[in-house]
Amino acid sequence: MAIMTRWPLLLVLLSPPLARSAQAQAEYRNLDAGFPVRIEDATVTERYAFDLDLANIRFDALSGNRKRLQLEPRFSYGILPYTEMWLRVPVYYRESTITPRKGIAGVGVGGMYQWSFESLHLPALAFASEAFFPTGPGALPAAYSFKTLFTKSLSSTRIHLNASLASFAIRSAVDCRVLPGGSVCGGQGGPSLPPIDGPCTIGSESAVPLSLSCAAPAPAANETELAQATTDRLVTRAHWLVGMAADKTLPLRSIVFVADAFAERFEGIGRRTDLTAELGARKQVSPGVVLVGGVGRHFRGANLSTFLVLGATYSRALQGFWRRF
């Protein structure tokens, strides 16, 4: 149990990925998860469009004056009709009391399929899925997600609904015991888990010390402890998320403002449902560049934080790998 208390859960969680435009040269209205808000629209990258997100940074301010940075380079491509694929590589940088302090959390590979476009009466509908492969010493097994996205346009706004279900792997040697019929977690509320998409999350994905708990950082683990942890039993749990966003576009200025709220839960670890609200904007500054900015507050659950997101997306056409015109 000592190990359990010192080593919080290792979490692998899927961040809902990219979606891009149905418009050839106007990308700013295509909301991508995390850029700037978590809830996105039900639109895939148009065919042969290649999007690069190379400068997307999230800054988190947590309790105890702890600050963290996350950089998430992403590439997406409209590879088939109605279908996009993406690759993302989250990189983290955290407070000095945690070891390792920086690194690559893993590699995510996913895709989204446009099931139907929006009509007068029905919303647009898309499905997305991703596999995330943690990296680093003692990396956990891959995690998988499935997501459903809806978008309904009204005269002056759009409404987006997202619902996702994902798996995440943990080492059972923490506060929870996996028993027939469910898990039993010790302590009030069980161990803390980091916020989704935050530096905590990506850090804990990669077999780093359990002290990565954002709520109460513990001294860095040594090699022996790490080795011990990596031999613990792995269990897979579920994570779900539901959320809604509304956006407002100023079409002649090519800017969209968006607000969202979402609830998510990590099942089986005795943690309360997390709630987060965000505000953001996307601005098309040239035919190939969109600037992104947003703020958010994770106001219920564990590891409450205030965060800032800044980034830019570069888009261009790309044909010729397998088909020439």
């Binding site: 050839a24 148009e46 042969y48 099931w115 139907s116 476009f117 007068l120 009466h121 459903t148 044909q319």
Partner: peptide, 23 residues
């Protein structure tokens, strides 16, 4: 909800796939 959307109906059928410009 997803399955409730009939993909073959006139209202929700899969429309032409958007495609970007020629690089």
């Amino acid at each position: 909800v997803a399955l409730g959307v009939p993909p073959g109906s006139a209202d929700a059928q899969l429309q032409p796939n958007p495609q970007t410009y020629l690089a």
